[in-house]
Structure formats: C-alpha cells, structure tokens
Simulated scan of single mutants.
Amino acid sequence: MAGSRMLRRWVIIAGSGAALLAALAIVVSSTVSTAPPASSMSPNPSFIDRMDSTNPPAWANGLTFTHATADLSREEAASFTSMPWRFVALEGDVLRMVFAAGDGACVLHRGFSITSTKTLVEVRVLSVTDTSQTARPSRLELGAADVTLTEPLDGRALVHSPTDPQWPESMLAD
C-alpha cells in the first residue's frame, strides 16, 4: 500500500513536470523567431564603381578570363541571385571583372544582365539558387570574365547592382 502511494506521487510529479516542460516549449517557440534579422533580409546596396583597378586582385591569380555577353534581360534577372563582382579593367566596351559565381553545389553561375540609362550602366552577375537543397556547402567559387557591354560607357557611371544579403561585396576584398 505504501509502495503504491509512493508510485502515485512519482507519477503525479513526473506528469506535472512533463506538462510544465510542454507549456514552456510552447511559450519559447511562440516568442523566438526563426526568420533572419530584418537587416540581413535587405539586399546589399548598389554602388558606383570607381574603376581604379587595372589588375585582378591577388586571390584571382590563376583564374581564366572568358568572353561573355549580357544574355539575361532585367525581367529574367529578377528570378536569379545577384552576386558581387569586382572591376579589373575597361577596354572600349569590354568590362573585365572577377566575381562570386556561387558555391558550386546549390548556387551556380547563370550569366550577366546589363541595364543602361542616360546616366549609368548597371551590371548584374547572376546565379541560380537551388532552394530544394537543405544542406549547403560553405564554399566560394570564383569566376572571371570579359563582358561585352551593350554600349560603351561614354562618361556614364558603372554601377554594381544590389547583391543578395548572403553574398556581400566584402567577400571579394583583397
């Protein structure tokens, strides 16, 4: 009899403890957001390139520059990931650049998009992101290209388009 009372007390204590833990889990899960902070959801801002480099950065040694054209329209570009790039040189209407191409698995280079106005030429390096992948490598693949502009700069500003928050321009620093 005393043993059953003791067992009953332990069952009540254990049941109360489990209920308390379940209630605590509900409170914590409703107050903790899994969304990234608002600041990281905003794209990295666009900026005007000073065009003051004449050589690729040291980390780009060994990259082969391939000829490329801007083959994606601004509308098509909207569905891709905007990646950071770095000015190397401008010869006529050919822009030499190095860029973040992706991670080689989930984020893969797709192409370039150029938008021109009377005052600026905006260049986008674009990659496609496979969002079905749950595990993504922490790896950076680089590219190098000689991109033919749709028309010469003729005094207009060369502008980097805003980049995806996960791909900041700073990753291409010296």
Results as ranks from 00 to 15, higher is better:
residue 149 L to C: 05
residue 18 A to W: 14
residue 19 A to C: 08
residue 5 R to N: 13
residue 112 F to M: 03
residue 149 L to T: 04
residue 144 A to P: 13
residue 123 V to I: 01
residue 143 G to P: 12
residue 125 V to I: 13
residue 79 S to G: 05
residue 125 V to W: 11
residue 19 A to I: 07
residue 64 T to R: 14
residue 162 P to I: 01
residue 59 W to D: 10
residue 159 V to G: 07
residue 19 A to N: 02
residue 49 D to W: 06
residue 70 A to I: 09
residue 168 P to T: 05
residue 36 P to T: 09
residue 159 V to I: 12
residue 52 D to M: 14
residue 3 G to T: 05
residue 160 H to G: 12
residue 137 P to E: 06
residue 66 T to S: 15
residue 109 H to F: 15
residue 74 R to W: 02
residue 94 V to A: 10
residue 87 F to Q: 03
residue 72 L to N: 09
residue 105 A to L: 06
residue 13 I to K: 08
residue 121 V to F: 00
residue 72 L to F: 15
residue 98 V to A: 12
residue 55 N to L: 15
residue 103 D to S: 02
residue 137 P to C: 06
residue 50 R to W: 06
residue 147 V to R: 00
residue 86 R to P: 09
residue 114 I to F: 02
residue 152 P to T: 04
residue 83 M to Q: 08
residue 79 S to P: 01
residue 105 A to E: 06
residue 81 T to Y: 00
residue 102 G to E: 04
residue 59 W to I: 11
residue 105 A to G: 00
residue 53 S to K: 15
residue 114 I to Q: 15
residue 129 T to M: 07
residue 133 Q to H: 12
residue 26 I to R: 08
residue 103 D to F: 06
residue 135 A to G: 00
residue 121 V to S: 01
residue 111 G to W: 03
residue 85 W to Q: 12
residue 133 Q to V: 11
residue 7 L to Y: 10
residue 65 F to K: 11
residue 131 T to W: 12
residue 84 P to Y: 10
residue 92 G to R: 02
residue 66 T to F: 13
residue 105 A to S: 06
residue 143 G to K: 03
residue 64 T to A: 14
residue 161 S to A: 15
residue 14 A to L: 13
residue 153 L to V: 02
residue 49 D to F: 04
residue 7 L to S: 11
residue 119 T to C: 00
residue 46 S to H: 03
residue 45 P to G: 04
residue 76 E to G: 08
residue 15 G to T: 05
residue 61 N to C: 07
residue 110 R to G: 00
residue 145 A to P: 01
residue 17 G to R: 05
residue 16 S to Y: 04
residue 13 I to S: 10
residue 147 V to Y: 01
residue 36 P to C: 08
residue 8 R to K: 03
residue 17 G to M: 07
residue 139 R to K: 11
residue 17 G to F: 04
residue 35 A to G: 09
residue 21 L to Y: 09
residue 8 R to D: 03
residue 166 Q to L: 14
residue 5 R to Y: 12
residue 12 I to D: 03
residue 21 L to S: 09
residue 135 A to F: 04
residue 156 R to E: 00
residue 23 A to W: 08
residue 39 S to A: 07
residue 15 G to I: 10
residue 85 W to Y: 14
residue 99 F to N: 04
residue 31 T to R: 14
residue 82 S to T: 12
residue 50 R to P: 10
residue 91 E to Q: 09
residue 86 R to C: 10
residue 102 G to R: 08
residue 2 A to L: 08
residue 158 L to I: 01
residue 76 E to L: 03
residue 60 A to K: 11
residue 85 W to S: 12
residue 117 T to R: 01
residue 55 N to W: 13
residue 138 S to W: 03
residue 20 L to G: 05
residue 91 E to K: 08
residue 40 S to M: 13
residue 152 P to K: 05
residue 23 A to C: 10
residue 143 G to C: 06
residue 71 D to I: 10
residue 155 G to Y: 11
residue 158 L to R: 00
residue 174 D to E: 14
residue 98 V to N: 10
residue 49 D to P: 11
residue 60 A to F: 10
residue 174 D to R: 11
residue 147 V to T: 00
residue 98 V to H: 10
residue 174 D to Y: 08
residue 153 L to I: 02
residue 110 R to M: 00
residue 57 P to A: 11
residue 35 A to L: 13
residue 78 A to K: 05
residue 10 W to V: 13
residue 83 M to K: 05
residue 106 C to Y: 09
residue 72 L to Q: 14
residue 9 R to T: 01
residue 61 N to D: 15
residue 159 V to A: 09
residue 40 S to E: 15
residue 78 A to L: 01
residue 49 D to Y: 04
residue 135 A to N: 03
residue 69 T to S: 09
residue 48 I to M: 09
residue 43 P to R: 10
